[in-house]
Every structure is written in structure tokens, then in C-alpha cells.
Amino acid sequence: MNGRDEARHVGQVKEVTSLTNPVVKDIRALAQKKYRDQQNAFMAEGLKLVIDALDLGWTIRTLVFGKSQRGNPAVEKIAARTVATGGLVLEVSEKVLGAITRRDNPQMVLGVFQQRWHALKDFKPAGNEVWVALDRVRDPGNLGTILRTVDAVGAKGVILVGETTDPFAVETVRATMGSVFAVPVAKASVDAFLAWRKAAGVTLVGTHLKGSVDYRTVDYKKGPILLVMGNEQQGLPEPIASACDTLIRIPQAGRADSLNLAVATGVALYEIRRHALPTIGKDMA
């Protein structure tokens, strides 16, 4: 396709039925991290997620919807918004949607968006804010669930420390239920994270199996608070654990020796927010 053809197709609604269509191939490739990185893009499934992303100012590159959605006012509206910003709109068969999403019963709407990372230096905790750092989180479902929980409790952002799973992976985005568009995310090495933490002046609270303090007994009003959670298998590495102002533990009565990372993060976050914002319990009752 030459430049003149590309210019003619940008912002136009195209009907696609072939899996060999080059645009469809590019979207399908987003299932792999290397192609997400190359294209600086990712895929989000579902009408609500696409609307949320557009409302929050994310850049949509391609909107894809099934033929059954033709005439749906909500879909037509986001198609018009996509066209207005120079994006491409594809009307496809259910077979093509299934191939893109790798699902037998796919969502009828999906969007391809430009990735958005925040610079760590732009994270400036203040007041009674709560932030979260995750060290080498590996499971996309865990990361997605944590982003959703961070959004739900009103925490301000997430720092991914070390080699972590991709927040823009299809599985992660699905697990966030749209919160990937609402929660600022930065990434950093351990050294960069520790240097930032020192300059930011946050109270660093880490969960650790060797933590001697019950998470329910800590005074979390010494904000801003940064909750740091360790890798699913290995927990917090020594450099980060040593830098914590408090190492907490979540008591367990059963035979399990640990909690799922996302569950533990949720338990700790709600307790921290309960102290930082006493009305949160009433708001969420």
C-alpha cells in the first residue's frame, strides 16, 4: 500500500473478512510482547473498555467491531470519535474477531490503543496519598487484578520494579476491567526505585513473611504511604526489604503458608486506605 492509499484509508470504515488482511495480522500480533513493544500499542476488548479509554483521553489507533453491531448507536458514536482522531475503523466478521481475540465467543468491539507509560520522576506523592510498588510481578492476572484494586481504593499509581509482566498484555488488560486506563503506571530498576523513594519522602511499607508487625496494628496516617509487594514466589528482595520503614504480615489461620499476591495486596490496601481516609468504609459499604 503506497502513501496515497494509506492517506485515503486513514479514518475510513473498512469491511474486512479475511484473516490475511495486513491490519488484522498486525492486531493479532499484539498478543506477543515484542510486537506490542514494536508498535507501542495494545488491545482492549469490550465496548465499555473502549468508551472508558476514549473518555480518559487515550489515543485509539484502530477500532474493530463485528457486523452484528452495525446500527448500534454506541458503536457508531465511538466509530465517529475514532474517525475524528484519524484512527482506522474495521467492520469484521465474527470469525475475524475470534481469530484476533483467540476466543470462541469474542467481544463484539475492541480497540487498539497507544501505550502510555509515566516517568517515575513525575510521581510525586503528597498528603495522605497511597501508592503501590510491585517487585517482579510475574502473573498477568495478578497484575491486572491489582491495577483494578488500586483503582477501586483510590490509590494514585503503580510502580513496576525490575523485570515484571507487561501491563499491556491481553490477559492483564482483561483482568483490569478497564482500570488499566485509569491507573498511572511507571517502571524502574531496583536502584532507580530506591533512589526515587528516598527523594520522594514516602513511608515505605512492605509485606514480608518475616514481618513482625500485624498489618492491622500499624499507624498508616504517616502519609504518603507506598505499599511495596514482592514477587509471587520469592517475596521482597533484601535491598527493598531493608529499605522499608515497616515490614508487615497478614496473619493466617489455615494451612496455607501464603496468600495470592493480588489478594494480599487488596487486603493491605484496604486497611491502609481505611486509616488514611476513614470515610472509605462508609463510601464502600
Rank of each mutant, 00 (worst) to 15 (best):
R4M: 06
D5F: 12
A7W: 00
R8M: 11
V10C: 06
G11M: 12
Q12N: 11
Q12I: 08
Q12K: 15
K14Q: 15
V16S: 13
L19I: 05
P22V: 13
V23S: 10
V24F: 10
I27V: 15
A29H: 07
A29D: 12
L30A: 01
A31I: 12
Q39I: 01
E45K: 11
G46A: 10
L47H: 08
K48Y: 13
L56S: 13
L56A: 14
L56K: 14
W58Y: 13
T59D: 05
I60H: 04
G66N: 08
Q69Y: 11
R70C: 03
E76K: 11
T85N: 10
G86P: 15
V92M: 10
S93F: 12
K95H: 14
L97G: 10
G98W: 06
G98C: 07
R103D: 06
P106C: 03
Q114E: 15
R116C: 03
H118E: 09
H118C: 04
K121H: 07
K124N: 05
A126C: 09
A126F: 00
W131N: 05
R136P: 03
V137F: 02
V137K: 01
P140V: 07
L143K: 05
T145N: 13
I146Q: 01
I146D: 01
R148K: 12
A152S: 12
A155P: 11
G157T: 05
V158A: 04
I159R: 03
T165H: 09
P167Q: 12
F168G: 01
A169I: 07
V170Q: 14
E171C: 00
V173F: 13
A175W: 14
A182C: 08
V185K: 15
D191Q: 08
G201C: 06
V205G: 00
L209Q: 08
K210F: 04
G211Y: 00
G211V: 02
S212I: 00
V213H: 03
V213D: 02
D214L: 02
V218F: 14
G223I: 07
G223M: 09
M229S: 04
M229D: 01
N231I: 01
E232N: 05
Q233I: 06
G235S: 02
G235D: 00
L236R: 10
P237Q: 11
I240R: 04
A243R: 01
C244M: 03
C244I: 05
T246A: 11
G254K: 09
R255C: 01
A264T: 01
V267H: 01
A268W: 13
Y270W: 14
E271G: 02
R273I: 08
R274Q: 06
M284E: 14
M284Y: 13
